[in-house]
Design a protein around this nucleic acid. Structure first.
Lengths: 179, 179
DNA sequence: GTCTATAAAGAGATAGAC
DNA sequence: GTCTATCTCTTTATAGAC
């Protein structure tokens, strides 16, 4: 619901109706509407961070790490699109403290990705004429906006899409003889 | 304001206060809050479509068209970040008819970009193992999410960033001897 | 754990004077 | 073109019975 109508645009009435209960019943399970948003956001970050960490560590050869990371990110992100979109754009509705917590989680994830990118640069497999920070931002751009338009019922699977995006990014950033 | 708090999260009271007038005064200028959102969205699309069209046509050599397109897109998008972010994510608050109009505008823009990409593929300058549609989506991913985190007061200019993103995309999609 | 009922505040929008 | 005042509806959240 938050994804469809936005956090502020969703009322507790609609939320309750969607769950088939009365408004008051909601408040037995959650403390406030904002609590719900906060939990969604933290779950999103936890899911994606842990999945990507696991996939990276499980990658056999070091040179497969980046690809494994992209695959894991896309698989998780496209499995729970609603949750991740909500985290990405509705965090502004949170209280300052919680807003900061979510931002900290995102920063941590970004550092995780940047770490892998830095290692690949150091290993000579990734171009170094663009900083690790900028490569990280480019990669996250490529992955994050996908969540907004991807239709699971479409004719393209998440895995296929991950391959395409990997290919665009990796070919564009590989260290090789270039001008 | 819509960017900061979202459309539904922004009240006409706050809007009026920001402009230094009373609530009622707003309604002398706009018909409804939704009208305002609709105008913002259509302005965003018009600006970006016309700037990119002009830049593409002005590009001297055909092989510079794609680069010119990316530059123009980023320049306009980062100049009026608030407006474009609002168009990108708040369109869901519009009535069905207006929602459809905004989506049609976005589709039209996507076709414009895809047209340039197709010509580059046909000219043998862009890889063809990924469809024009998927290359277009990849490019728009790369560009669109940037609007969300770019800070104009940061140490990186819009032009520098456009160069970096161009470089990542163009190097990743160029037609050349690859495996 | 779910309900009915309601409190208290805030929303979008309008009337009508100046 | 801007104001004060207000209407009407919806909002989040709570009280208290079952």
């Amino acid at each position: 619901l938050f994804r469809q109508k936005g956090y502020a645009g969703s009322s507790t009435r609609e939320l309750a109706q969607l769950l088939g209960v009365q408004k008051a019943t909601l408040y037995h399970h959650i403390r406030s509407k904002e609590d719900l948003l906060f939990e969604i956001s933290m779950n999103s970050l936890r899911d994606i961070t842990s999945a990507v960490t696991a996939a990276t560590e499980a990658a056999g050869r070091p040179e497969d790490r980046l690809q494994a990371m992209i695959d894991a990110h896309m698989r998780v992100a496209l499995r729970d699109q609603d949750m991740h979109i909500t985290m990405l754009i509705e965090l502004r509705a949170l209280s300052p403290e919680r807003h900061a917590q979510v931002l900290a989680g995102r920063d941590e994830y970004e550092r995780l990705v940047r770490g892998v990118i830095k290692r690949e640069q150091a290993a000579g497999r990734l171009r170094t004429d663009i900083s690790a920070a900028n490569l990280t931002l480019s990669l996250l751009n490529l992955l994050n906006w996908t969540i907004f338009w991807f239709k699971p019922e479409g004719n393209q699977s998440a895995a296929e899409l991950a391959d395409i995006l990997s290919s665009v990014f990796l070919d564009g950033t590989r260290q090789q003889g270039k001008t």
